[in-house]
Write a protein that binds this DNA or RNA. Structure first.
Lengths: 141, 141
DNA sequence: GCTATTATTAGTAATAATTACTAATAAGGA
DNA sequence: TCCTTATTAGTAATTATTACTAATAATAGC
């Protein structure tokens, strides 16, 4: 589980550096994503955050997700599902994605995945992701 | 480069097995994707196929892409770009994706990527994908 | 602490990608 | 060649995401 307090602290620091304001909306959105391992989509974040901030708009959710991504606090899970899914866990891990129900499970690893040597031929490498696609037990059962 | 003739032959065989018809639309869409390494999106396939089949509809492109995917002849490239990108190369390889312009480059490998052991905990594994994100030379230049 | 500046937000409209619908067409088995 | 029915073209509808605007509130300077 991610330490949410330190995550908020990091948000405060990053916002200050980037001349961005530390708004309660940003705090709540980050809290929500960091407190679950379900890799929620924008709509799910919206529904959850609305419980504590009833007047937040979906637009704010999308903008905030983009901001948090720019600050490097969260990232989108690579997938081919219709909706983008978000993750606040920056430790080295990859994902098992159920192609049937869209569930995303974390696969933790002791070290981060190295990009193949040939990668550097095409440009500057920023990140390397591994996904495992399959059918989860729930969908099989 | 993919051998297109054998790809069409495989389509013929798979269609027959699945009780699906071998239509010129399916042949042309598969040809188009198999003849390029640019991993085109639906719109690009549409524009290209229209050159030889001017009356084909975008709906047919989307349906055909889904059918070809079901038959295992093509697959979607995992990405977080707004449009789905298609690939007909089934040999073991992964992708370098430029986060700026959306270009997708093939990274060929001598053997396919093995899923981490922990993957099997979550369900039946169908495929394992590796993506390298970065900024391509063109966008850096 | 108060004020002014301006980044950010809520509410909503617009766009972009994909999917659904329906009547007409054509693949392929009999 | 005919018949059945999967498939298609054309278009409408849906879904996810982004853009717009006036109102609000975070924070720097006083």
């Amino acid at each position: 589980m991610i330490n949410i307090e330190s995550k908020i602290e990091l948000l405060k620091q990053k916002c200050s550096e980037a001349n961005m304001r530390l708004t309660p909306q940003r705090i709540e959105v980050l809290k929500m994503i960091a407190s679950t391992d379900t890799h929620p989509d924008a709509e799910t974040v919206y529904e959850k955050v609305k419980e504590v901030m009833p007047f937040i708009s979906l637009d704010t959710i999308y903008r905030t997700l983009a901001s948090l991504e720019d600050l490097g606090l969260i990232f989108k899970v690579d997938n081919e599902l219709p909706k983008s899914r978000y993750d606040a866990d920056l430790s080295p891990h990859c994902h098992f994605i159920c192609v049937k129900c869209g569930a995303v499970y974390d696969i933790h690893m002791d070290k981060s995945i190295e990009p193949p040597k040939e990668s550097f031929k095409y440009g500057e490498v920023l990140q390397t992701n591994l996904q495992v696609k399959g059918i989860c037990h729930k969908c099989r059962g």
